[in-house]
Every structure is written in structure tokens, then in C-alpha cells.
Design a binder for these strands. Structure first.
Lengths: 241, 241
DNA sequence: CGACTGGTTGATCTCCATCAATCCCTGTGG
DNA sequence: CCACAGGGATTGATGGAGATCAACCAGTCG
């Protein structure tokens, strides 16, 4: 907070990636200045997305993976009968688009849930670069591995049988992920609608609402609109299992 | 079919990988003989696992990724209260262990559901090799991408609200994956118990059983113990959504 | 041949999906 | 600035789906 100021924008940073708040996602931990600038040249800063804007759609040609600077993105598929199914929420500091590497086609839709900024990293160029920069390949593997691990974590979340379990696990999951990118206590914003949550968790919209108010009544959570505060973390943790 | 015979086993194959039925998983499509033998030297054929044997356990040091030759493996996590939560089933022709690359520690347990044989591919050696063999890196990325895409597919499966939907989607998912590795019609074996299925799908064991018999009564499926036959694929597909 | 694991079936009660009404934020235009 | 509209969220009432408890059955293995 000490150095923040509106004129900060005017300062020329020699490398955008170097100053990036999610750089550990893209870059190996120890990298010399020259290598950083090589990667920096690679990255395309996309114009900010507004709420409802698509980052990509099902069937779009794969142009690269995306690192979320800030904001939130929802990914979803559509069943052959036309029903939407939310497959994930992606928060600041996370990557998405990794599922498109295999077939070079995006298998799902990605839409911004709020004002969002992303970096596009052309994948084939990244691969080329990895032959010259040692450690970059390993870093990429780690990023993808983390994503696979995360998905497993999600499966444990959805594996619960009761609605309460799922909601609680979902909130704990969000909390954990928000903590990574933000210095934060026990309050945060739900960037997605109840509708999206219910769809994601396989519950009815009303059930989500009811469970949340119920948790509020029991002084485990406090909820104002989309802002949520965890009042009793221990209890919440207990309810998760 | 023409060349198959029991004495085939006696013939010396110059490369085990070359003859491997899941080779497209490990190896880039076009690779010269020399490169294949390099990779072949890398791969460790593990002794066959019997039902109930662990391939690895939560917390085990990561030694490499595994390619399933034949058999089936269940992965699961344990909640802090000690409840098991199944996170996936891995069939012949699939890889597992990718979730451990990031932290070099296996985040879940992997146990054989039946007699199973795997190839272990030491990951750091694979990375080393990828600097000399072009295309190997890209192939690795594709394998991981496919895994991420698959997990999303699973989320769409679990996102359904009704028990029938989940069961049906689960069966269709299995069918599709079995088809890849086996020339097969509409019959296959469920390698996992009802218990495992119910845990995975977030349903009660009895519900799984009931749903299956119900589908049988409606002549959509036929079930004998763990053997299942899809009698009416169109109807099954309809029920999935 | 029992003991045992895994699977099915039945009865009951709870939880959750569904339908419906109301409320509350957000933004928009007079 | 207020009124109004419209989407998002809450709350209520109700029926049905599915969890739970319990008994029973069928392979499997020592």
C-alpha cells in the first residue's frame, strides 16, 4: 500500500511478466533476465473481458493457454439436448485452456463472470522456447500436473452425498484458492451466481440458497449478497466430511 | 487376426515399447527405431499387481508415471475424518500418476481392482530425453491435456442431478473408454464393485443396485454379476441428459 | 461345508427437486 | 431523483427421489 499511486501506470516496467502476479505459474523459479524477456515477448496481453464476454467457445481453434491476471471465468459444456453443464470456475492466478492442447480445439466454452484480464501464451511458441530454456518444460509439466491434481480435489468435493457437504466443500475450496492470490482473511466474494453453483454441484438452485442461509443461521457463515464471511472455520471443516 | 498364434510369445521382439498396445500414449506417432529403443530402455516393467495391491499410496515419493497395460486401477483419497472418496478408475491403455509431478508426492492412493500390469516411466528421465527427441515433449503435453479434458468430461457426468443420469453417464463413459483399448461390442465387465461406483458417483450403494436393475427391467441393459450388456444404446443415450 | 464378501430387495423416513410467490439488488430511463 | 423493470436470490409448500436400516441371497474361498 505504501508505494501504490495512480502515476504508477506511467512507470515503464522492463518486463510485464517479471512484474506479473501469477508469474510462478508461467515461469520457472530461477530464470535470468534475458530468458524472462524472451518469454515476455511471447505473451499476448488480451483486452480486458467484460462480464459475459467469451474467452473462447467450444470448437474454437486452440491458440494458446491463458493465465488469469484478475477476474473469474466459468467453463461449461453443452449436452446434446442443449443443457448447460458448468465444469469449472477459474480464478485469478490460475490457468485455463490446457484441455485444448491435445486436439487443438477447445472442448468447452469459457465466459467471464466479471471484468477479467488474461494473458494468452501461444503454446507452440512456448514449446519451441522450452528447447532452449531448461526448466521451462518441467515448469509446464508442473502446471499441468497441478491442474490434474486440482480436478481430483474437485471430484472429492462432488463425491459427497448430501447437499450440505457439497456446499461446504465448495466454499472451502474457493476459500483456499482465493487465499493463494489474495492476502485475505475469511471474507471473499462469490464471483458466480447461485444458478452456476447449483449447476456445478448437481443441486437445485433453491437448495444452494437454503443451505447457505441455513449455515448463516447456525453462525458458521455470514452472507451479504455475493459476499461471504467464514465465521467458524473449524465447524465448517467438520461439516465437510 | 491373420498372424496371431500362441507361439508368438516365443518370438523375440527387439523393443517392448514398439509392440506395446498403449504405445501411442507414450510415444510420438513417428519415431525412428533408435529413438524407440532409447525410450524402451527407460521404461520399467513392474511385476503384475494382484487385486488389492497398491501401485502407490498417498504421500509416496513420485518415481514416475504409469501406463496401464491391462487391468484396472482405482484411485482414492481419504478425508481427514477417515472416509474414503474414490476419485477415479483407470483402465487399460490409460496413464496415471500425472497428479504427482507437481509436488513429487502422490496425492492419492492407487489400488488394483484386478490383476493388473503397468509400465513405470521415470519422469525425470523422460524429461531429459525430451530435450534430444523432438516431439516427445509435445506428446507428453498431449497426454496430460487429454487427462485434463477427461476430468472435465467426468465433471459433466457427475453434474447430473438424478441418480439415473449419473449411472447412465457413468456406463456410457466406461463403454467409450473400453472401446478404445478393446475391439468390443456392447458387452463389458464392470471391474469395480457397486460400493466403489456409489462412492464415486455420490450415491448410496443400494441406489446404484436399484438403478441398474431398473434399467435391466426396462430392457436397456442386461446385467449378470459384473458383466453388463447394453441392449438399447439409443435409449441409454437419451437417458443421459 | 460354513463363513464371508458382495449384491439384491424391501420398508420407511428424510432430504431435496420442483413449482410458485415474493423480495431485493442493479441498472435504466423518464 | 424516483419509478420501473428485470434478473438474481430467498422463502414457502408439496411430492417424490433417494438415503438409511435391515433382511436375504449368491458366489467364493479356506
Amino acid at each position: 500500500m505504501a508505494t501504490a499511486g495512480s502515476n504508477l501506470k506511467l512507470i515503464h516496467v522492463k518486463s510485464a511478466c517479471e512484474a506479473c502476479r501469477v508469474r510462478e505459474l508461467c515461469l520457472p523459479t530461477s530464470l535470468n533476465d534475458q530468458d524472462v524477456s524472451l518469454i515476455d515477448d511471447l505473451v499476448i496481453r488480451r483486452a480486458p473481458l467484460n462480464k459475459g464476454d467469451f474467452l473462447y467457445r467450444t470448437g474454437d481453434k486452440f491458440r494458446g493457454i491463458y493465465a488469469l491476471q484478475y477476474g473469474a471465468i466459468k467453463t461449461y459444456g453443452v449436452t446434446r439436448q442443449g443443457r448447460e453443464q458448468v465444469t469449472g470456475f477459474h480464478l485469478a492466478g490460475e490457468v485455463l485452456g490446457l484441455d485444448a492442447i491435445d486436439e487443438e480445439i477447445h472442448p468447452c466454452n469459457a465466459v467471464a463472470l466479471e471484468k477479467t484480464e488474461v494473458c494468452q501464451i501461444p503454446f507452440h511458441k512456448l514449446e519451441q522456447l522450452s528447447t532452449t530454456i531448461p526448466g521451462l518444460l518441467h515448469n509446464l509439466s508442473k502446471v499441468m500436473s497441478r491442474e490434474i491434481k486440482h480436478e481430483e480435489h474437485v471430484l472429492m468435493m462432488l463425491g459427497g452425498t448430501t447437499a450440505e457437504q457439497r456446499i461446504v466443500r465448495f466454499i472451502l475450496n474457493l476459500k483456499q484458492r482465493m487465499s493463494k492470490s489474495e492476502v485475505m482473511g475469511y471474507s471473499f466474494k462469490l464471483c458466480m451466481s447461485r444458478q452456476d453453483i447449483s449447476n456445478y454441484l448437481g443441486l437445485a438452485l433453491e437448495t444452494v440458497s437454503r443451505q447457505l442461509t441455513n449455515l448463516q443461521d447456525r453462525d458458521v457463515l455470514e452472507i451479504h449478497n455475493r459476499y461471504i464471511t467464514i465465521l467458524n472455520p473449524e465447524e465448517l471443516q467438520k461439516l465437510a466430511d
